[in-house]
Amino acid sequence: MKHYNIPVFISHFGCPNSCVFCNQKKINGRETDVSLEDLKNIIDSYLETLPKNSIKQVAFFGGTFTGISMSLQKDYLEVVKKYIDAGEIQGIRLSTRPDCISDEILKQLKKYGVQTIELGIQSLDSKVLSATDRKYDEGVVENSCKLIKKYEFELGIQLMIGLPCSDLKSDYETAKKCLELKPDIARIYPTLVISGTELQKMYLRREYNALDINEAIFRTKKIYALLETNGINIIRVGLQPSEDLTAEGVILAGPFHPAFRDLVENEIYRDFLFEIIKKEKKLDIEVNEKNISRIVGQKKKNKKEFSPYFNLKINNDLDKYKIKVNGKLYERSDILKRELKE
């Protein structure tokens, strides 16, 4: 059964932290910008168009949901709970900070049908956390993840590559440490310089160098392979190209691409094919048609690079993630593990 999110973007104006990459505004006297009536209207609008026979979750994104007051959290949750009780929605997911988790908060979330909690971990490198003004340490993250697992929520982690003071090693070491937290799902975001942030000022003062697209792909692909080979479901790679994000003047620098995940996948398969062609000097490839784009690459990049050795044949008897090259069958794990070689 297909899954759909009903996204509700709740800013947290009362957030006590000002992370350098965040552009949320401070508005005195207001906790957030979505009224209870707004929430109801958003849900009703989506329910009119989403298939009846599907799994639907209300997804509170955009801010630090558990950082707002307990009473306002309860008000939001009560609105959604009525739809859950009526069978129109199957649950709730939300994103928040590691330092905004407690027993009291989790008990309330459980009571009202929250199923998934995603933590914006971003990094577990102390220098990076300090440089980005996150105001928590690795121990806070570990304790929050343990609590979330204790209450049997699905645990999600959000990682950012290319933050100030990070490098390839620190980004990868963060991902390795995250394996110990036993997350169920993950998102990987390359850092972008967004207008109105402290990072913009750092960038303009030349105190921060944004990653280019090639470096971002290079850093991401190894983390991507590590998480997937350890059974973590990667639900997004790269920021979604929303209207707010793609408006002129919003992104000042950084590796934004509307199909960033595809670029990472293309490069992983490119590395795999390159190793084979070095040894065997030919590429007779059989793949399921659903896997062709990963093999060929965007704008046929991989096909052009490996021409004239590149011979591709569709074989829909193969599983989507399996590939046969020069008569040998390779599993998805075979391809990913090549990225993890030191």
Rank of each mutant, 00 (worst) to 15 (best):
L124N: 00
D212M: 05
I323D: 03
G327Y: 06
A86W: 13
I277E: 02
P16G: 08
L204H: 15
L147G: 03
K56F: 00
L50K: 03
L47D: 00
K111N: 05
L245H: 02
Y76E: 01
M1G: 12
Q158K: 07
C165T: 15
I117T: 02
E342C: 14
K313L: 04
K110R: 11
I43P: 00
K299C: 08
K324M: 10
F306M: 08
K110Q: 04
K282Q: 10
C178F: 11
I277K: 11
T96G: 00
G238S: 03
P164C: 03
V128P: 08
D44H: 13
H12P: 07
I92N: 09
L336S: 09
D262C: 14
N316R: 07
D33A: 02
E37C: 13
Y330V: 01
S242Q: 10
G87M: 09
F260T: 09
R30I: 14
E48Q: 13
I105G: 04
E207W: 06
Y189Q: 07
L226Y: 02
D167C: 09
Y46A: 04
K322H: 15
S144R: 09
T229V: 10
K127F: 07
I101M: 05
I292H: 08
A253Y: 01
F65Y: 11
K127P: 11
V237R: 13
S144D: 01
L163C: 00
I223W: 07
S195C: 14
I157M: 07
F60N: 01
S123M: 11
K107F: 13
E198M: 14
E286A: 13
S54Q: 06
C15H: 05
D171A: 03
L124A: 02
F60P: 02
L129P: 06
N288K: 07
K25G: 04
S293Q: 08
M70T: 12
V264A: 12
N209Q: 14
L181R: 08
L163S: 06
A225E: 02
L226K: 13
Y83E: 04
L211N: 08
K182P: 09
Y224I: 09
E173N: 15
N288F: 04
